[in-house]
Design a binder for these strands. Structure first.
Lengths: 212, 212, 212, 212
DNA sequence: TATGAATGAGGTTTCATTCAT
DNA sequence: CATGAATGAAACCTCATTCAT
């Protein structure tokens, strides 16, 4: 084990206090900065300044900058995992399920926008740090969900027989999650509109149906 | 915005030296590191070390670290712009054209893999620096090409009438370019295979066609 | 030299509170940490944590970290001074007196182990701080006691005529007090055993007496 | 393995360059400060200031502050080990050997004064850091040398039969090495004078021989 | 008495860059 | 072309201490 673990030094950082209001505030501020500028490019000075405190004061609440990143990401990942699992338990047909997965991805993106942006931008780089090992597991968990539904759909004839499951999964994943780069919660395009359009393209393609 | 102007010293290199072999070598080494670890996270020391020289020596070839990034990106962007323009000049039907754009995107990704990764990962962050203003222009150029073809296709009935051009463009762009994160030139999935599968999904959708 | 004066606030504690039980407990905890890790290396957070309170709470009992160190050292130094003085008042021959000084040093080390360790490790560094000026005086007091006995013994013929008083004093002092680094109160070697062996070596040497 | 290892990042720090003149200068400056104020209490800023450079510049020569400490200590320890081993190879009687060990200890103290002071003051605290694991081995090596000679002497009758080898060793070690705290190379007491007086006390004791 | 949030100074280290040789 | 020493700014983090509650 390397140095990248929460040492639980101060009472204020022990399990119970994880939910303090000030903490949540600071975390939200940090998340927005991380999302906008990148984790490395965001300095603790900037976070502190945005929060109106001094850099050292951040360390009363968090063990390190990476500990903040970690907490931000975990909250999103836990939520998203639960959300996907719910869909699987509802056991609809493959096409309905895929559509619902897309919808829930966009809803997660809406609710945890900063976290999604961080995850999307930096998962690769962060994964080199021991503390962020769990990111890889989360990615694998997500992958398993999508691929299972795609494979089911192909087997039952809901999806094309020549569908390459891996490539389809990657196309969807990348297309959907990368939307966080341009999605604007206060823009004209709502989460629902985007999701439904993506689902349409994904399922039916952009080509017009042949006239019969 | 910082002040990122090429200093006077650069003049001595702008003409002849730009094409030196050593330069290209160094640039390739740097590009791979930038792509793998991120621009900020890659130190000039690491680049120098990979090249077997000392950090100071890099400055005989390039004005700065960002100058290297700039050169790496420009090469790719110029190529890609020309490649897209060629497609437009060939004036096929919309669907053929879209397919060809996808193919040429993947070919660009194959040839300028590191540059694409850098562009994909860091264009947003770099765009804040004066020297990288041109990235935004390049993005706009690409966008114009894709949207024109999509709009043409919708007008001529090749594409669905209810297609949201902007969203379709973004979905394609994100899905295609983000593939650089996992594309492995020595893997089993060739550029061609990926491109054709993506084109199929994109045009026809993943859903099996209704039996008539 | 820093300004280390007890602030006005301390007045409220100087009389009655000095003897509180909680204080003594906290002081003992701090002393052990200071001894084990060094004064500088021990943080008030660690002390507080060991005591089960928060760092800020320590300041209800003590003015500062150095005030704790000071109190710990003073208790030992006052005791040791009194103990040495008693020996001098008993007025035995030089050799008996030296032996008794050694014994009482070890007894002091046993009773004020942490304080002795701190004194031994850090007197030099602490002496640069105004508040710890008295350490130098204590050292001088101790030195005077030992040297007087050694000089008496040399004059009366109890000790060798070629004895260098200063060097002998230093050898004894260093050899004896440094034992605090390895002395283990729960180990097999008792304070008495160590003292008697040291007295033997000191007085008779390690060499076997010449056969006559 | 933790983070405390030389990473050999820069060419200037690779094996060969270990002997540069500037390095040695800087190391000597640092050693004196470490010895005088303690390792923790000495800041890299102070070292740099003493050397007339900026703090960051130190990192051109050394990987870290602890790397400097390590190098300082290793040089002394390697020397002292070799020096002790030479004595053992000369195979004189136990008393002569012990005397020679004392002499060589003082000579080592003279030549590597700062290193000895650091070793004496901080070996215990440093040993908690992985990088300084070897300190414990060095201590054990030294202990083995002294104890072997003491045991030999007791067996052959050169030393008292009731000598406690462990305690005798510790007394000598502590008495001798702690002298570094007050030894002044420009003072009146030469290394030789101190060594001979210590040898006399150690072997014959401070008590005057009984008249025969 | 105790808490928890904050301070402010200072710590070690990193790193792009410069420049005399 | 390359080196190696140095710069200077800025990074993350630590910690004794304060103080309103």
């Amino acid at each position: 084990m390397s140095t990248e673990h929460s040492s639980g030094r101060a009472a204020s950082r022990d399990a119970g206090d994880t939910g303090s209001e000030r903490r949540a505030e600071l975390l939200a501020i940090a998340a927005d900065l991380f999302a906008a500028r990148g984790v490395r490019a965001t300095t603790v000075r900037e976070i502190a300044e945005s929060a109106g405190i001094l850099p050292g004061s951040l360390y009363h609440h968090f063990d390190s900058k990476n500990a903040m990143v970690d907490e931000i990401l975990r909250e999103f990942l836990d939520h998203q995992r639960r959300s996907y699992d719910e869909v699987l338990r509802e056991a609809a047909d493959a096409r309905t399920t895929i559509a619902e997965l897309v919808r829930r991805s966009f809803r997660g993106m809406h609710r945890y926008r900063a976290a999604v942006a961080i995850f999307q931008n930096e998962a690769n780089h962060l994964a080199g740090i021991e503390r962020f090992d769990h990111l890889r597991q989360a990615s694998r968990d997500f992958e398993r969900v999508w691929k299972r539904v795609l494979a089911d759909g192909r087997r039952t004839g809901a999806f094309r027989a020549d569908l390459n499951i891996t490539l389809a999964y990657r196309f969807i994943r990348d297309g959907v999650w990368t939307a966080v780069h341009w999605y604007n919660p206060r823009g004209r395009l709502t989460i629902n509109a985007i999701a439904e359009q993506y689902i349409a393209i994904l399922c039916e393609g952009i080509a017009a149906p042949e006239r019969q």
